[in-house]
Each structure stands twice: as C-alpha cells, then as structure tokens.
C-alpha cells in the first residue's frame, strides 16, 4: 500500500555528522582545522606558503592538506615551507566532503599538529555547502576579481568566519575599490572581519595564523547570520493540492 512518510532529514546530515566527529576528535588532541575557500587562482596557495613558513619559524606545529582536481603542484609549493603537506586529488569532484578526510589524515597528520590548513578545491560554489570540521572558515578574494564577488557568491561569503583580500600589491593597477568590497561583504555577512594581504609584498603576514591560533585557544569566532537560522522556521506554505503527496495522520 502507498503511504507518505515524514522523514525530516537534512540532506547534508551525513556530512555534518562526519564533520562534527572530526572536529571533536581533532579538538581532543589540540588541533583546529582552517578551511580555505576561493575561486581558482585567488591566491590560496601563495598565502598559505607564507603562513606555513611563518608558523615554522615561530615553532608552531602546522600541517596542510591541499585539494585539486589534478596535479601535485600546490603540495610541492607548500612543502617548501617545511611543514607536513599532503595533496588530495578529488578525482573530478569539485569540492571536499568531510567523509573524504579521515582516510587522508589517519597515519599522516602528526600528533602534535596545532593547526591543519585545508586548501579546498578552487571553487566558490560547491565547497560552501560542506562543513569539513573546521573551526575557522576563511574565504579569499583577490583584488582582480571585482568588488561584487561577495554578492555573486553569497553562500560562500555569507558563511565565512573571516574574509581575506589577496594580491593588494596590484590593487591600484586594477582599480580595486576596497570600500565597495567591504560594503558588499557587510551586506551578506554583517560583522565579519576582513583582512587585506599580499603574498607578494608581505602585507598582512601572520594575520591568518594569528586568527587561527586565537580560535584554537578558544577565542570567540564570528558567527555569520547565515549559520544561525532561527530554530523554529516559519512553516513554509506547504501542501499543493494537486501534488501526489498528501500528508496523512
């Protein structure tokens, strides 16, 4: 017989449960994850190279996992810092999911690691939906991408704990309007901090590392409006009388 079953399950339930477990496991050993999101080529690897090098110089145990569809180039670049680095090839997938991480971390991530940086696949759409167990989600945009990037990718920017502007050394050349960029970010994610960096010139060196260490030590992390949907959403107008699905008592 035909019946209608109320499932009420989040589509991302499995990923979210996996991410929660990962966050707890890592927290128990004193490690926090930093998830870096941006479009292809915004400068994730370049910024990370500097921050890893700085961390090593300061004696802070860090590690990095970098995801790409193909090539080990980013891992090779990051490994120059001397930090443990691992390349994840996603086999065509445009984003990382929490369930993909365990297998990569087991037996590789050094016990003493305090910060694990994850460079997500260069893509501002898909990775935004997947919690990777991070304590800090960082969304980057380079000055060449246009001030309205946050409006075009509201889910990515709306869920960020920290926004990083990259390549400020060429801001003047491309006519980057920082005030407009800041206003757009504020519209989507009120109150989120925005830091300006240049991996070329060294502006903002250590900003990412300092924020990540503070978060690891329990400093309050920004709570984006988009992550705190009211727990009792207004009932959406539901039943379409013509649809096949009818609720049953």
């Amino acid at each position: 017989m035909c019946r209608v079953v109320d499932l009420q399950q989040a589509v991302l339930a499995k990923n979210d449960a996996c991410a929660r477990l990962l966050r707890e496991d890592l927290a128990a050993r004193g490690t926090a994850v930093v998830n870096l999101l941006s479009s292809p080529g915004s400068g994730k690897t370049a910024l990370l190279e500097r921050e890893l090098t700085l961390a090593r110089r300061r004696g802070i145990p860090v590690a990095a996992l970098t995801a790409d569809l193909a090539t080990e180039n980013d891992a090779t670049r990051l490994a120059r810092s001397g930090a443990p680095v691992k390349q994840v090839l996603t086999d065509g997938l445009c984003h990382l999911e929490a369930g993909m991480l365990g297998g990569h971390l087991d037996g590789w991530l050094p016990q003493e690691t305090r910060l694990l940086f994850i460079e997500n696949v260069g893509n501002l759409v898909c990775p935004a939906s997947y919690d990777l167990g991070e304590t800090l989600r960082v969304v980057l945009a380079s000055v060449t991408e246009g001030e309205d990037k946050p409006l075009k990718y509201p889910t990515a920017f709306g869920l960020a704990h920290l926004v990083v502007v990259t390549k400020t050394d060429i801001a003047a050349a491309v006519g980057f309007d920082e005030a407009a960029f800041r206003a757009h970010v504020e519209q989507i994610n009120p109150g989120v901090e925005i830091v300006c960096t240049s991996a070329r010139r060294g502006e903002g060196d250590g900003a990412l590392l300092d924020r990540a260490l503070a978060a690891l030590d329990g400093a309050p992390v920004h709570v984006p409006v988009m992550t705190q949907q009211h727990s009792h959403p207004e009932p959406a107008s539901v039943l379409d009388p013509n649809s096949l699905v009818q609720s049953q008592s």
Binding site: V4, Q9, A236
Partner: peptide, 12 residues
C-alpha cells in the same frame, strides 16, 4: 528566519 533549508521532508 528561513532560507537555509536543505531538507528531505517526506517520501511516498
């Protein structure tokens, strides 16, 4: 208040 739903509501 709303907008972030991504939920399986019901199945027949």
């Amino acid at each position: 208040l709303s907008g972030r739903e991504l939920q399986i509501v019901s199945v027949s």
